[in-house]
């Protein structure tokens, strides 16, 4: 193949650069798209059979918060383990119970229940929550987060999803 010493005629040059840019962009896209999905969509981690027994309904008094500890399966990447988990549960009536995630909605400190004041108190920045989870004071931006719960045959079952108010 012989070519002139001068640059190839502009049509051929244009064709070449179009081919380079077009094919190059297709390759880049074909690499970038799966990479983006890989990085940003995350893992299809299986949700383990959600509900775990945490307490007997009869052991809970209406309107009186109790800290319950229960074991559940935690799936962390490729590792599955059993871990102790804590929830604050409040029985609201004969049939219903709410379970709060044990962390303050401000910055994640563990709060506790003050019997005398009948409210939850966070020791970090003095956020206060009522026993129905509402913010009574302090910097907490939203009510306490709740676990999904079910009551079945007199038992309190706590799920693995946390709902933000």
């Amino acid at each position: 193949m012989t070519e002139d010493k001068h640059p190839p005629p502009s049509t051929r040059r244009d064709f070449y650069s179009t081919a380079i840019n077009g094919l190059g962009s297709m390759i880049a896209a074909a690499l970038a798209l799966p990479a983006a999905l890989y990085l940003f969509v995350g893992a299809r981690t299986e949700k383990h059979a959600g509900f775990v027994e945490a307490a007997k309904l009869d052991d809970l008094q209406i309107g009186k918060p109790r800290e319950v500890t229960f074991e559940r399966t935690i799936v962390d990447g490729w590792r599955t383990s059993r871990e102790k988990t804590i929830a604050w549960v409040v029985r609201t009536d004969a049939k219903n119970v709410v379970a709060y995630s044990p962390q303050c909605t401000h910055l994640g400190c563990a709060y506790h229940f003050e019997e005398g004041q009948n409210q939850f108190v966070c020791p970090c920045h003095d956020s206060l929550f009522s026993i129905d989870g509402k913010v009574l004071g302090g910097p907490a931006p939203r009510p306490l987060d709740r676990y999904n719960v079910r009551v079945d045959s007199g038992k309190l079952l706590i799920g693995n999803q946390i709902q933000k108010a």
């Binding site: 799966p34 893992a43 299809r44 981690t45 990447g77 590792r79």
Partner: peptide, 17 residues
């Protein structure tokens, strides 16, 4: 082994990568 199994079974496009 576990993490590779995780990549090819659970991570989006992990098998392709």
């Amino acid at each position: 082994y576990d993490s590779l199994r995780y990549i090819v079974t659970e991570v989006t496009r992990g098998r392709l990568v």
